[in-house]
Design a protein around this nucleic acid. Sequence first.
DNA 1: ATGAAAATGCGAATTATTCTCAATTATATT
DNA 2: AATATAATTGAGAATAATTCGCATTTTCAT
Lengths: 146, 146
Amino acid sequence: MKSSAHETIKSKGYKLTHQRQLILSILEGSQTHLDAEALFLLAKRRDPKISLATVYRSLSTFKKIGLIQEQGFGEDHGHFETVSNKPHFHFTCSQCGQVTELRSKKIIRLIKELCQEEDLKMESMDLLIQGLCPVCQEKKSTSTTS
Amino acid sequence: MKSSAHETIKSKGYKLTHQRQLILSILEGSQTHLDAEALFLLAKRRDPKISLATVYRSLSTFKKIGLIQEQGFGEDHGHFETVSNKPHFHFTCSQCGQVTELRSKKIIRLIKELCQEEDLKMESMDLLIQGLCPVCQEKKSTSTTS
DNA sequence: ATGAAAATGCGAATTATTCTCAATTATATT
DNA sequence: AATATAATTGAGAATAATTCGCATTTTCAT
Ligand SMILES: [Mn+2]
Ligand SMILES: [Mn+2]
Ligand SMILES: [Zn+2]
Ligand SMILES: [Zn+2]
């Protein structure tokens, strides 16, 4: 029951390079949803020679073998998180951009049922909700209530 | 109770140019989820002088005033649809790329409840499911069952 | 009809991501 | 441990979607 991610990489026929290990460990250790650039900057602190292209290639590989997932968040670039986390949804605040994770076993079950009814074989789901976080709701009502 | 989209454009202080009317009418008449390039090609058939930049600018404006919504579909470019359609979800086949629309009043209600519980004010939601459509499931099982 | 402000067309610029290719590295084999 | 081979990397060029800059045109209130 050790580092199964490393096993997955090798079992899929990919080499366990130290760049891949580094990138993966950053993703696993991060609580936030990193984008490629942020990940690259963090990686460079431990390996100043690492290339942005390698970050993108690793992300692509990890995604292909199911170690990570990419999130859109309605921006012009992706964000990444490990798949180990239980399935969840994302809420992004349209004002401050903060990302909140939401969970609901019930909703997930209903989505699966919906797919079965339509004879669709689900491989992944992504629910993104946009709106105002509690803090920004407060700000807005304060400035409006003159 | 007439063309409320035109009214919306003017009421928000935007000018009702014939380019905007054209782009909007194409979006309203389309059954598919057009991307900017496809929309541009269709628009050029009726106005050969129209610019791709104008298409992007119009899409951006329409999105801002709530006339249309942009969908990610996990690609490197957006797809667009009018908001008039009842809220719905999207399923894209990872094999053939086909997009299917799904509806579930129940799921929408549960999502709204989930947001209320967390004190989040929802402005929009996007549920994207990826998987295999019935046709591609069939193809896969046929080729596998030697 | 006139004028001011907004919008357009066109090409250049920008940004995220991918590609090319020579040099390096991981792994299997000796 | 040394070698061979194929995969991977770094660096920068290339690409693709989208945005910008600006001169010209159009909308719309007067
Ligand atoms: Mn971001
Ligand atoms: Mn597309
Ligand atoms: Zn997440
Ligand atoms: Zn749709």
